[in-house]
């Protein structure tokens, strides 16, 4: 098993390194001079050159890449051109909005989808199953940012139950913060719940057809006990895979939703950085998100070993 884990870890590190090269090179070929863009067309050549020097833009690309990547490893992501503060500080400031939003929407998605998927599988072919499948089919087709607009219209403008947007900051209290994140999290989480409920249903149905389930029933175990004790855990691999993929998607998806609700998260930071051509911010935030996705994929792989003991034995051999 250790060999499999080491191999997976090494591949994740290689993937991270290649991804960092891709991100660096992609933003390296940007047309125009960032220093010129920042200072405007009326800037003197001397001023532009001075800024280029202070930003390190006149160093060779390889040197800049190595300094960027070695800085990232120790938490130094460079300094924002426009905010004049370390990117790490900006990241910490904004991730306290984006991460809770992604986690809350993942929680909403799983809390709805898993019970609904189990219920539909347990009553396969019933009217409830058909209804759940039809609703989930519709849910998959709904773009989260449109659902967000509708939620704003109904819950904030019409019923005036929650604020339409903005974020008061965690210092205004956890409840106030969560209240501001609730609508965005529902908008992000519901379409994902539609996908996850279908995956849960089909994974569980496949497990329920296995011989050991029949044996458990033949032993006299109740339907409910068979479902919860034997079938559910064994059908968790595809469910965990999708949850892992969804978390990565939700983290990136916050970029759009933050724009609907005017939330000061990573997404809005990236868009502001693009318009201001603050490339170090764009490249660092994209790299952090990509690294998070690679790490989540690795954790999902490792979770398989925890869920399925057969994989542990196979890996140990």
């Amino acid at each position: 098993m250790t060999l499999v884990l080491t191999r997976k870890l090494l591949w994740a590190i290689v993937t991270l390194i290649v991804a960092s090269v891709v991100v660096f090179l992609a933003l390296e070929i940007v047309p125009g001079d960032p220093a010129q863009v920042m200072l405007g067309i009326n800037a003197t050549d001397e001023a532009v050159e001075a800024l280029r020097r202070s930003l390190g833009l006149n160093r060779p690309p390889l040197e800049r890449y190595l300094s960027w990547i070695s800085g990232m490893i120790v938490g130094d992501f460079g300094k924002s051109y426009t905010y004049s503060v370390p990117v790490w500080e900006l990241f910490i400031d904004r991730v306290t909005v984006s991460l809770p939003l992604a986690l809350l929407s993942l929680f909403i998605s799983a809390a709805i989808a898993i019970p609904v998927g189990v219920y539909a599988a347990a009553r396969r072919g019933s009217a409830a199953d058909t209804g759940i499948m039809a609703i989930s089919q519709l849910g998959i087709a709904v773009p989260n940012f449109w659902l967000a607009l509708l939620l704003v219209y109904v819950m904030a403008i019409w019923l005036q139950l929650v604020p339409a947007g903005g974020f008061p900051g965690w210092e205004a209290g956890v409840l106030n913060g969560l209240q501001s994140l609730l609508l965005p999290a529902i908008a992000l989480g519901l379409p994902q719940a539609a996908i996850l409920s279908r995956v849960t249903r089909s994974a569980l149905l496949e497990t329920l057809g296995e011989d050991y389930i029949r044996t458990a029933r033949a032993k006299g175990l109740s339907r409910r006990a068979t479902l919860w004790k034997h079938a559910l855990r064994n059908s968790m691999i595809p469910v965990v895979t999708i949850i892992g993929l969804q978390f990565a998607y939700l983290l990136a998806g916050t970029i759009i939703i933050e724009n609907v609700f005017y939330l000061p998260g990573l997404g809005r930071l990236v868009f502001q950085a693009i318009s201001l051509r603050d490339l170090i911010v764009v490249e660092s935030i994209v790299m952090i998100l990509v690294a998070t996705i690679i790490i989540i994929n690795l954790l999902v792989d490792l979770a398989y070993f925890w869920i399925d003991p057969r994989l542990r034995r196979r890996g140990a051999r």
């Binding site: 991804a19 933003l27 940007v30 047309p31 990136a252 998806g253 990509v290 996705i293 690679i294």
Partner: peptide, 19 residues
Amino acid sequence: DIIFAFPALLSAVMITAVF
């Protein structure tokens, strides 16, 4: 796997930042 680590939105962010 490396391409998979870049959701369409992140690729679009990078491409837009450049072009």
